[in-house]
């Protein structure tokens, strides 16, 4: 299509800087040009042909925080950022995965939820490796998916549960009831482990305030594979902790003089060295509270992945700055039977 200057348009050009408002509004007139000829008339243009195809993401062998955290972040970001401009749907090829864990499964589900909220269909397969396949099936991931044949995957396995604990607002009832189930699995008794309810509440609080305003959602899950301990994962998609800190000018100068890396900044946030972006004096209590539960032994093996930092509260050697940036925050921790027995006897 070409644009041809019409009479009124030319008038506007001539009269520029004068009384333009007295002139007619410029009009654009379509001039019909013959359609372009394709090299082969039988072949559809590339963009139309692609539009009917899936965009396939092939996941690497290591999809776990221990063996492949960088890859896991890279691929979950790739899923989250998928735009359906040229493809009809997204296909997740998980068949080659040889190492998988709950944290990465939850990160993936967060990203899939982001894509699905943009009304893009997501399809996928499962790991071929029998151990990974078992972990994947038991994780509760599939209970958030639809079958291609129609209907939802159902899970009657109470040992594993992934719940969406909020979209616009956190749902403390759901957090509490999910934790009740987890406690019963380990101890056989149903009682409130208040500390974990409080901790997850604070995690949700932070993310409610600072998660993306569009497509907000928060995933919370536990996974019990027998034995004496249970794993919990909390995940959100948002700006991440580091981007929500309010650093004073003094802190910024001091941190740059001492070449303080992001790992030290994140550790500082859990020690209340920085304020919250809300700038209210009584804020940023949640992160120190979360750390205090780890320090006093109410939870064990607490880790956090946020922005480009992996922070292990047990081991500073394992903590590191990452090459890939995760948009959001993931916490994982464990609770064992000893912790719960001690708690219930108080």
């Amino acid at each position: 299509m070409r644009l041809k200057l019409t009479r009124s348009y030319r008038l506007a050009v001539v009269a520029r800087g004068k009384k333009l408002h007295t002139l007619k509004v410029s009009r654009r007139v379509k001039v019909h040009t013959p359609p372009r000829m394709y090299q082969e008339n039988t072949t559809k243009p590339e963009r139309i042909r692609k539009k009917q195809e899936a965009f396939k993401i092939v996941f690497p062998g290591n999809f776990s925080i221990e063996k492949g955290l960088e890859d896991a972040i890279f691929y979950t970001n790739k899923v989250r950022d998928f735009k359906a401009r040229h493809f009809s749907h997204l296909f997740l090829d998980l068949s080659k995965i040889k190492n998988i864990d709950l944290v990465c499964i939850v990160m993936l589900l967060s990203s899939v939820n982001q894509v699905a909220s943009r009304r893009i269909p997501v399809f996928g397969n499962q790991p071929l490796d029998p151990i990974c396949n078992d972990i994947f099936n038991k994780s509760g991931f599939l209970s958030h998916m639809n079958k291609i044949s129609g209907g939802k995957f159902t899970s009657s396995d109470e040992h594993n549960l992934i719940v969406k604990i909020g979209t616009d607002k956190a749902n403390p009832d759901l957090i509490g009831k999910t934790n009740l189930k987890a406690v019963k699995l380990l101890t056989g008794k149903e009682f409130h482990f208040k500390k974990i309810n409080s901790m997850v509440g604070e995690m949700a609080g932070n993310t409610m305030e600072f998660a993306y305003s569009i497509n907000k959602h928060y995933l919370y899950c536990y996974n019990y594979c027998g034995g004496d301990e249970i794993t919990f994962v909390f995940s959100d998609v948002g700006y991440g902790i580091i981007n929500t800190l309010n650093k004073s000018v003094g802190h910024i100068i001091k941190d740059s003089v001492t070449f303080k890396d992001k790992l030290a900044v994140l550790s500082g946030a859990f020690e209340k060295k920085y304020g919250s972006k809300t700038e209210e004096v009584n804020r940023n209590q949640g992160l120190p509270f979360i750390k205090s539960l780890s320090s006093e032994g109410s939870v064990k093996d607490l880790i956090v992945i946020t922005n480009d930092v992996y922070l292990d509260f047990n081991s500073s050697d394992k903590s590191k700055v990452l090459s890939n940036k995760y948009s959001g925050t993931v916490y994982a921790w464990k609770v064992n039977k000893i912790i719960l027995d001690n708690y219930s006897s108080i």
């Binding site: 909020g166 956190a170 403390p172 009832d173 509490g176 609080g205």
Partner: peptide, 15 residues
């Protein structure tokens, strides 16, 4: 009020 008290503000949490 509630068995499961929530977070700080009405805008971010039930209860």
């Amino acid at each position: 009020f509630s068995v499961y008290p929530g977070l700080r503000h009405v805008s971010m949490s039930q209860s």
